[in-house]
Simulated assay, not measured.
Amino acid sequence: MARERSGRTVAHLVLATRLKTLREAAGISRGEAATALGAHTATVRRIELAETSLDEGQVHTLLTAYGAGAAEIAEFLGQLATANLPGWWHPWRSVMDAWQLDLMSVESATRIIRVWEPALVPALLRTPSYARAVEDVRRPELPPADKDRRTELLIERQKRLRDQNTRIWAVMSAAALRTPVGGEAVMAEQWQALRAAVERPDVTLQIHPLEGPCHSMTGMPTVTLYRVDVPEIPDHVVREGDLPGSAEVLSSRHAVTAYHVLLDHTCVVAPHPDESKEALS
């Protein structure tokens, strides 16, 4: 899967999967469900894959055909109404990259986020000043107000991930510590923030030294692996592209497993997190 659809939230995917489970438990084929719906079989397939919006009327018809009781139908429709509410990131949608719109709902259900960052401080560990300075370099074409909003979004993501106890496991190159971003004051603040972050139980940071050996992620762009804590939703990988705002989003088992193995190998080769703490002292 190259990318998620921006309207396809985790909640929608869970409800769509539940519809499929109820149909199969009732012993009803997709063709029979389509007949009850007065639609083509492909419509039922798209509903069960959350490839189309979940319409309240269609969902009610399907649940009735599957033998669901009034209480179960009411509960399901209540969950659907909640799922249809705008995500917390809605106020920032105009300045978000397409892949960010697609992944925010997945991120909200993520248990562990693993990151490989080849040249800069990982985004989820950046200070506001450092993040804003990166926007100036990476997105010079954007108006200052848009850069400010994008920075606000990143800081809000960091806060929400802390609140939901998502673990951040980042591997970065020591080159980031020697690459000036935004001036001495910005770098000093960022160093201090990293020192504080590595003391938190939800953060693991490993720093590859410049003189370290070649490893499995050497030469790769920024890669983020989302380990999702919802059974119906697969883990996701984001491999950022060379152009600003571009990225490839993958969720196939083969792709996720491949990057998982690469990250594991890189973490084995990288210095222990305790040594990374010393590098920041």
Rank of each mutant, 00 (worst) to 15 (best):
R139N: 13
R150G: 04
R162V: 09
K159D: 01
S94I: 04
D148E: 13
M104T: 10
D97A: 15
I155D: 00
R149I: 01
Y130H: 14
R111Q: 13
R160A: 00
S94K: 12
D163T: 06
S108V: 03
W116N: 09
P122K: 09
A109K: 07
R111S: 12
E156V: 02
Q100M: 15
M104A: 11
E107R: 03
D146V: 05
L124S: 09
A145V: 12
A123I: 04
V106M: 14
M96A: 06
T110S: 10
L125P: 10
Q100D: 04
P143M: 08
Y130L: 07
E152Y: 01
T110V: 14
A123R: 08
Q100E: 13
M96S: 04
P143W: 06
V115G: 07
T110R: 06
E107L: 05
D163S: 08
V134G: 03
R139G: 01
A123H: 06
R160Q: 00
L125C: 11
L125F: 11
S108R: 08
Q100R: 06
T127L: 12
S108F: 01
P140M: 09
P144A: 13
L103M: 15
S105Q: 08
K159N: 04
L120P: 04
D146H: 15
L142P: 02
D148W: 01
I155H: 01
T151Q: 03
V115L: 11
S108I: 02
R139A: 10
T127C: 10
S129E: 15
P143Q: 07
